[in-house]
Simulated scan of single mutants.
Amino acid sequence: MLFALLFRQAGATIDPEDAVRRRAAFEWTRTWALAATTGVLSGLIALTPALRAAPWLPGVTYWLIPAGIGLFALIDRRRARAG
């Protein structure tokens, strides 16, 4: 989460005219927030009784990271086409 907050801060300090760098900072913030959220979710699952029934589940949650990044890319492409 620290990286997400650092990229968020960087995005806030970039010149508003520099849309490319601001967009890059936003995308990195989003990606690192996704990674942090996935890690917390994995930890929470590991603390539940579901761990006995499915000991593989906390590790599988990390597949949400590439799936989320792919979803973000799809959303970004649709936004670019629309506007």
Rank of each mutant, 00 (worst) to 15 (best):
M1R: 01
M1V: 06
M1C: 01
M1G: 02
L2F: 03
F3A: 15
F3D: 07
F3V: 12
F3W: 14
A4K: 04
L5M: 01
L5C: 01
L6Q: 08
L6H: 04
F7G: 02
F7T: 03
R8Y: 03
R8A: 12
Q9Y: 00
Q9M: 05
Q9L: 12
A10S: 07
A10M: 11
G11Q: 05
G11F: 06
A12H: 00
A12T: 03
A12E: 06
T13E: 02
T13K: 06
I14N: 00
I14V: 15
D15W: 00
D15T: 05
E17K: 02
D18I: 03
A19M: 01
R21M: 11
R22Q: 14
R22Y: 10
R23S: 09
R23Q: 07
A24T: 03
A25W: 07
A25D: 03
F26S: 03
F26M: 11
F26A: 12
F26T: 05
E27W: 10
T29N: 09
T31K: 06
W32A: 13
A33C: 04
L34W: 12
L34P: 03
A35L: 15
A35W: 14
A36T: 05
T37D: 03
T37I: 10
T38K: 07
T38C: 15
T38L: 12
G39L: 14
G39M: 12
V40Q: 06
V40T: 08
V40I: 13
V40G: 01
L41P: 08
L41V: 12
S42W: 10
G43C: 07
G43R: 07
G43H: 01
L44V: 14
L44A: 10
L44G: 12
I45R: 14
I45L: 14
A46L: 10
L47K: 05
T48D: 05
T48N: 07
P49G: 13
P49A: 10
A50C: 09
A50D: 05
L51G: 08
R52M: 06
R52K: 11
A53T: 06
A54D: 13
A54G: 04
A54Q: 13
P55D: 11
P55W: 13
P55Y: 13
W56H: 14
W56G: 02
L57E: 11
P58I: 02
P58R: 14
P58W: 15
G59I: 04
V60S: 15
V60L: 15
T61P: 08
Y62D: 11
W63P: 00
L64M: 09
L64H: 10
L64F: 15
P66W: 11
A67G: 05
G68T: 12
I69G: 06
G70V: 11
G70K: 10
G70P: 06
L71V: 08
F72N: 09
A73V: 09
L74W: 12
D76V: 02
R77T: 08
R78D: 08
R78E: 09
R78C: 05
R78Q: 11
R78F: 11
R78N: 09
R79Q: 10
A80C: 01
A80G: 02
A80Y: 01
A80F: 01
R81E: 07
R81C: 03
A82L: 10
A82D: 04
G83A: 04
G83Q: 04
G83W: 02
